[in-house]
Write a protein that binds this DNA or RNA. Structure first.
Lengths: 221, 221
DNA sequence: CAGCATCCGCTTTGATACTG
DNA sequence: CAGTATCAAAGCGGATGCTG
């Protein structure tokens, strides 16, 4: 006779039950969709439920609600109730949740080669460009005046701008940019991650207009 | 009428179908147990099936076999058939698989605070000490002769030694060490990650013998 | 014994419908 | 808008059985 101890947890919490920092981390953020929920909150800042959901095409609504609840219990997410005029709930990362940015950065760097042969009709949101751009692009002429590159791919235009020796991504296209990159998301991503030469991308439907030096300045040699 | 496209994959491959480097990375290494399989192969080097399984207490054998197959298909793991004298299969990481070390290091750093309040009878293998020790410990006197600290916790003794300004972990305890740290895994881990003061650990069952300067040299201020 | 494959009960996920 | 409810399908955990 062997007494089995399936280790009962408070509610739906499945653990590796290993005394290892990696296993403990994965106990908290290793479930399906969890890391992508963190991604959205990192990229968007405090967000309403519906906006988070829009950034996670494919997630089931009940699952998102569940994940947000678990992340709140784990201390990675907090919910702020806005006062009556707005009357909505905002989800945001706690400092402990924001510390996952280093983990996501490492995963993004590792994952960049995989986007090249992705299915072309995968879902895409243009703010997803932020991580690869800020991780991979550097300003090769940081002493010259800053430049802006408008990127049109996916749901809304974004602007890549040189800043502090690197690159930043922000929403919308207010003023006229120094250059414009537009086309199918997968190809635009290929260009910005230097996995696809601009000429090849052009031949497959990407357009680049404006100062040619802008892209050269941002991409690695 | 809406044509649903549940995106058919070759076999059991579930994808987020998002054009995002993070999502693509998680498509490959985001499944349950996958990252821990990588951990074992990183820590042990080329290993037999049974040894990998021993480093993954709690995994179902069929699941391990499945994960190894998927990782092989994804190009992260290779299997070497040893010639007749040994007549066994060795699993090892490919270079692409080894690149996940940066991801694991980031997850370990994030997860270290979680081991402090872990269940004391979680499973433990002493080689799991490697990641936290090498990520967190530094040699505060790199110009002095190297020192060794034997750690006895879990299944087999390991030796922490100063090397190149940091610390390394290796198996077994050949020569006599400069100091010896022994006790319940959770408390020993607490001491080595500087989350638990040595005096507190001693009061709870940890023993430390030998040169007191060894531990002080390794732990951050 | 190493290296899996099969079977089965349970849990998690996915898709969609519904409600305050 | 912000979720909950429902239910089928897939995945997981545990045990056991098979093969060289």
């Amino acid at each position: 006779l062997k007494i089995s101890t399936p280790r009962l947890y408070a509610a739906g919490v499945r653990s590796y039950s290993q005394l290892c920092a990696l296993a403990k981390a994965l106990d908290v953020v290793g479930d399906r969709w969890t890391m992508l929920v963190i991604r959205e909150l990192l990229l968007r800042g405090p967000s309403r439920y519906t906006d988070v959901r829009d950034g996670l095409p494919g997630i089931a609504s009940n699952l998102l609600a569940g994940r947000l609840r678990e992340l709140e219990r784990a201390g990675l997410v907090a919910r702020d109730e806005a006062p009556p005029p707005v009357a909505t709930t905002l989800y945001r990362l706690t400092p402990r949740g924001e510390e996952l940015e280093a983990v996501i950065a490492a995963l993004v760097r590792w994952g960049v080669p995989l986007v090249v042969d992705a299915d072309p009709d995968d879902a895409f949101r243009s703010h997803w460009l932020t991580f690869p751009v800020e991780a991979l692009l550097t300003d090769r002429a940081p002493d010259r005046p800053p430049v802006t590159l408008e990127v049109r791919a996916g749901d809304e235009p974004v602007v890549v701008e040189t800043a502090g020796g690197g690159a930043r991504v922000r929403r919308g296209g207010g003023g006229p940019p120094d250059a414009l990159l537009a086309g199918p998301p997968k190809l635009v991503l290929g260009v910005l991650t230097a996995k696809l030469a601009l000429d090849d991308a052009r031949a497959r439907g990407v357009t680049y207009e404006g100062d040619p030096a802008v892209l050269r300045r941002l991409l690695p040699a």
